[in-house]
Simulated assay, not measured.
Amino acid sequence: MTGAAVFRTEMCAMDGEAVVTVTGEIDLTTSPFLHVALEDALVSRPHYLEVDFHARDLL
């Protein structure tokens, strides 16, 4: 292991907006979890969806 940050997502939804923050390494192993997080964010049918990749290691 190279010390890469653990992959995780956080979602915050308020007033018709949703923000999904992605932390850690995105690869073939973690991309399905990102997909699920984005689908979960869209359940509430937000007018605006932001995906924050500032804390990610690899895309």
Rank of each mutant, 00 (worst) to 15 (best):
P46R: 11
F53I: 07
H35L: 05
R8W: 01
T2S: 14
V22G: 02
A4W: 12
R8G: 12
L28P: 00
V36N: 05
F33R: 14
V51D: 09
A13Q: 10
L58A: 13
T29P: 00
V20H: 01
H35D: 12
A18Q: 02
E17S: 12
P32T: 09
P46N: 09
P46H: 07
M11G: 08
L59G: 11
V19P: 00
L38G: 01
M14I: 03
A18P: 05
V22R: 03
A5M: 12
A41P: 09
D57P: 00
E17W: 01
F7T: 02
A13G: 08
P46G: 11
D52R: 08
M11T: 15
T9S: 09
L58I: 06
V43K: 14
D40E: 14
T9R: 03
R56G: 12
L42S: 09
L28V: 08
R56S: 15
T2N: 14
D40W: 02
G3W: 03
F7P: 08
D27R: 05
H47I: 04
A37W: 01
V36F: 02
A4Y: 12
R8C: 08
E39F: 04
E17L: 02
D27A: 03
L49S: 06
E25F: 02
A37C: 04
L42A: 14
A37D: 01
L58S: 12
Y48V: 14
R45L: 13
V43C: 10
V19L: 12
V51E: 07
T30Q: 03
A13H: 06
G24R: 01
A37E: 03
V51L: 07
S44D: 14
L58C: 11
D15T: 03
L38W: 00
I26R: 00
L58E: 10
V19Y: 00
A41N: 03
S31H: 05
L42Y: 03
D40S: 13
A13D: 06
F7L: 05
